[in-house]
Design a protein around this nucleic acid. Sequence first.
RNA 1: GCGAGAGUGGCGGAACUGGCAGACGCGCUGGACUUAGGAUCCAGUGGGGCAACCCAUGGGGGUUCAACUCCCCCCUCUCGCACCA
Length: 833
Amino acid sequence: MAIDDRQDRYPFRDIEPKWQGVWEKSKQFRVTEDPGRPKYYCLEMFPYPSGRIHMGHVRVYTIGDLLARFKLMRGFNVLHPMGWDAFGLPAENAAIDNGVHPAVWTLENIANMKTQLARLGMSYDWDRELATCDPAYYRWEQLIFVRMFERGLAYKQRSKVNWCPSCQTILANEQVEAGRCWRCDSEVEAKEIEGWFFKITDYAEELLDWCDRLPGWPERVLTMQRNWIGRSEGAEFDLPVVGRSGLAITIFTTRPDTAFGMTYAVLAPEHPLVDALVADEEERARVAAFRQEVARESEIERLAADRPKRGLRLGARAINPFTGAEIPLFLADYVLMGYGTGAIMAVPGEDQRDWEFAKQHGLDIIATVKRPEGWEDTQAYTGDGAKINSGFLDGLSVDEAKRAAIDWLVAQGIGRSKINYRLRDWGISRQRYWGAPIPILYCEKCGMVPEREENLPVVLPQNVQISGKGGSPLAGVASFVNATCPRCGGKARRDTDTMDTFVESSWYFLRYCSPHYDQGMFERAAAEYWMPVDQYIGGIEHAVLHLLYARFFTKVLRDLHLITLDEPFRALLSQGMVIKDGAKMSKSKGNVVDPDDMIRRFGADATRLFTLFAAPPERDLEWTESGVEGASRFLNRLWRFVHAHREEISAAGPPGPGPLSEAGRAFRRVIHETVERVTSDVERDFHFNTAISAVMELVNALHDFERDSLDQVAREERAALLREAVDTALLLLGPVCPHIGEELWTILGRPGSLFTQRWPTADPAVLRREAVEIVVQVDGRVRTRLTVEVGAPEQSIREAALAEDKVRPWIDGRQVAKVVVVPGRLVNIVTSS
RNA sequence: GCGAGAGUGGCGGAACUGGCAGACGCGCUGGACUUAGGAUCCAGUGGGGCAACCCAUGGGGGUUCAACUCCCCCCUCUCGCACCA
């Protein structure tokens, strides 16, 4: 089609590959530690090598590349690495579907995607490239696993876990979204199975605390992490079972102050104490039936709120230790075994769920907090107030009563204060092939034994049958399974599960600091120099998953004394999605835009420019082809201008020491103002879209000046200013559009690469103005404008404003009540009639 | 339900600690150059009005000389969590 082959576009198809070749050959973006320069570690979340990059990738990596190049020009020693999150299920599924080995599939994809990234002109230090499926990478992860195992931070347990029937593997809690698998969207089942866990709950408090000390993170992400950790403060205490000495139900509550209003108690249906509580076979049968009824409901139904609460009343009764009263016991589906103790005291007066249940079952409701004036008893009251009906707590506030109730429990020896977290330990076993093997062996004599450090890595075997069914594929590889016990030398079997791929991504940022180091996970000095990551960039989908795991892992490594570092990412930028026609790009919607296609038709620079220009980074980006064309148009205009004035600009010197014409001064001020605007837009708040619009304005002003200055400005001055404007525009635009930047820089005969230049700075003397236009308002409405000298006294501004022809009709016949003068901005004349 | 964020022209989006609402771009309209225009250049482009002016930042109140910006109430949308005791 002719549309795609317009002859009048600048030759991006020649210059883009040319400069990519230059950068690659000269290894321009290779870095080493240099204590003499401030460092800047710029990192974008590394991709899963799915085969082809998509527009989401283009967006993150363009943002990262802009920042990396910008910081480089600002004088920083910039680390900007790239690698591959190379383990994972899609490779294995491809093997099942096409018979290609996951390793082959993955490496091919990496090669393809690397080429695609190169075509976008990314400034990576490719010498630091890593792939997590490399044994030289995962051996260190296995070592850390062993260290964690030794310290009890990695443990194996049989428990009820999330099981994805389609992926045929365990999922971590973080990987279940509304009851569905995060990857394939299948409904997740509960399954009792043995698996390995990382004790992230040991770090719950610290992970939460540091949420308040990460000012460079978006509040949204911190909130999601806080919610996920889910700290709640309260008390735990025992309810003795009537007539069964020694038997008690332990409950957790955040409202110990309301204990006097406890009119019943509830256990989760699967609570282990239930068997001991049932009186006879008949009740046992009813319990079994109830449990079945609850279990039949899928996880998803169970999650759906506002449906009636099912309950079963037990024959056994318990004692409210605060009142001594006997209260009924229930099993109910609204109490979850997975949280707290799996049992609650029910206080329908002050808890809405208990209220609803009590109403359904005709149970007593006692108010223990004084209701406010006019309160209608149609729901539980959860607000503050004076305690009532609460014995020794009466008259106290809710907070005071909480403390007093806990003190009483402690004194009685039946309870204690307690903090509960929603966060569960991280289940990392995957019953799949394409992952890092878990370095544990099972010896008949010695039991569970970690592999010796010198035997690591435990290499993933190549020849394996992958069917996607029937458990861990490694179990079928005899040469892998049958091994020697590292302790006694006897026969042992290897663990056949692999680790969650999120384990690899929990420390890759550390590996980049010394990617070829073979004495350990990372070289300490290099990691201490580069870490933390100064700017991390990635999608919001990892707000809890990867970002929480990486924080946890960093703290573990710190506690293993491998590094002095509390948090891995100083600042985080969560970029929005790329959407088209109002929806996320997806094959099924048919609205996918192929980056390669864009590069072919408009060039990498235009693609990058549009991506950064169309929306601020944290917002969703609506992809429009006319927008990319606009970006391309702008670059064309710049290209044509530089070529039209090539000789004039090349030969020109900088603006001379002599005074400039008035037009020249004004234009020069625009140049320097643009430098200021772009610098602060990028540096302060990542407003790349407005930074780019500032450069566009400069180029517009450049065209105007070129046209208007011919007869009015001396030849030498004109050439000098055109030169300064073009040089500045190229420097400011370089990080966004590096290819055209380098090319025009070279065409103008400027020495060296654009990216070895220093970022321009604005000259305060040039920015200074003698006169400024201010707005004159009457009663808050703009009536005219006035040019006044900078620093003119308020009195004279006021008089000038009042004397304006456009102002007088508005104040004639009225009284001027007040004149507000905001220096350099406006005058507001306030009248009263 | 709880939490976070967002509502500004036909569209994407600007507007710093309150100070000219709509920068920049897309689209659109008219014109120039042209065999041609989907290239390029020039002019215009929130609504109303011939104009002076008036009206406009989801809606309603308020604070202020001055409100997209601050406060209160309400509406809508997006995202996250969702019976967490």
